[in-house]
Design a protein around this nucleic acid. Sequence first.
DNA 1: AACTCTGTTGAA
DNA 2: TTCAACAGAGT
Length: 604
Amino acid sequence: MVSYAEYPPAMPHDFELYSNQEHHPHFDLLATSQPYLPTSTYLDPTFSAPFDPLSLQAFSQVSRSQSDLRYHFDGIAQGVKPNCQHQHYSPEGSPNSASHSFDVQPPNLSTSSESGASVSSSAMGSPSLNPQYHHDPWNSMTGLGLAPGIVQSSSGFDYDSIVATDKLPGCVDPTLIQPFPTPIPFAQSPYPEIRTTPSPRFPFVEQPPSPAPSNASAYSQNRAGSRQFKRGSQSPYLHTQAFAPYPNFPTSRRQSDVSIHSHHSQASRKSGNSYDLDDESREKGLCPIPECGRVFKDLKAHMLTHQNERPEKCPIATCEYHLKGFARKYDKNRHTLTHYKGTMVCGFCPGSGSAAEKSFNRADVFKRHLTSVHGVEQAPPNSRKKSPTGKKAYSAAQSNLAGTCSTCSVTFANAQEFYEHLDDCVLRVVQQADPSEAINQKLLSSVADDKDVAETMDRNGLPNAIDYVVPNYDEEDEDEDDLDIDNDDQNDDTYGGLPISGSGRKKRKNYPVSWGCATDKMKMKKRVLCVYDGQRRLLKDDMMLDQEFEVRMTLPDGKNYVTDLDVQTLKRAEAIHGATAEERGPWVPDNILDTAEGDDQFLA
DNA sequence: AACTCTGTTGAA
DNA sequence: TTCAACAGAGT
């Protein structure tokens, strides 16, 4: 079973993995060797968000299934002294590390509905999640040579180099995994790719003048009231024709005619009604679909409702929305949360840890509990402001309460942080059955075929170094960002990977990125870890020992390097900070040789 | 402009 | 009660 524990806990509701939208000049050279980049697949949320100190929980989660194994670090882990027995650590260099502890302990995650988990219709057939949690010494690896003294010697770690001997066979064509239906154009539509059947919400061709503003406000101000009102009223534009909004799907919600009122009220929030717009605005926001013909403030967003293809697919293959999809990513993510089947215990309620503990079997209910009982603000601090009708203030007293996520066992100092962790954690668990691993493996195998890689390695007598001219690196971009990259002095040595050769000019340190593999030779498995900004990430897990990973990357010295990782992994790593490599500075893998030039600019 | 998030709504 | 569909607002 593919483990997808690489998902980070802190992603801003963005679960795009392979953001093929990103363009990075450093990857240009790889383009030809990446013929399988899926245009729409399930993407690793791990690397779509700024790094969060809680990321370490990802390690905790994944590694529990391999507790009794002996692992072998490869060269990147050199310098790590395996002498730490404890299982509790805090991510150094994390701005919030003081508020978290990472107690690796068996979680209470239920693997089934034994807890009486509510299973929605949309969750039907969701692959079972069967995390097997054991303590895993891997959890204590503070990071790929980043923190000497963390790895447990008793765990049997030792360090040698991974030899990639073969590429992985049996990759799956992503199109088979993600069978996106071809949009069915409507012959008369000016937008052949979009749905010309009207939205069930707005099944009108012509827009009459807006109803009285008083009506509009009545619909929008009070949900219960408006529903009651609507159900008891008839729209002057009432239209009894029912539409099949999605030709590929037989039914849809919103065939109610009264929904037109909702539209009017919502479209009119600011301007009074949607027809108060001046001619220019109105023309600009006029939906071109004849059957719609309405005016929207955000026409582009509205057009999503007309498209036949809904690109945001539920990652659960057995879910109807795996094929059906959502028009909006946020809706997809929100839906995905409904697949969670475990039990979540509120560690902030009295009785936590006892039989009287408060538990939840649905993430959304748990979240609601956190907001209503523990004063959690729903939006993360850096998201947009909530309306003045927001929840009660976050209590300082509550912030002193401690709670452990029963899903991943990460302990949080307060409910707010836990709340912000919850979505990501649950989604990660839910998506562990995600088939994208197969896609990725295919990508990797294609990269592994690269002739230049092999030739260069031979030429240099090195496992992973290659020279060729690449575009200049913009040094201006790196300065500022590099300042906050691994400023932790205690990590200086830990970024050291293989012994320095080549120019051997100086020992590298403070590289923004390093990575390596930890290998379990008994089970013939390995996992890839990445260190970025002094924090560890599990990038891949359950890889075959002979599974080859290679990636070429450009350094500021104008040379490209080959690592033992794949380009997708690199891109994920790049996405850790939600920034491009140019913005973040150079990407220096830990297990490449130092170069004669350009090193200084990486040093703190 | 693109993206993310919130709030509303109705169907199930 | 739950959750998908949607528009609008915030970032």
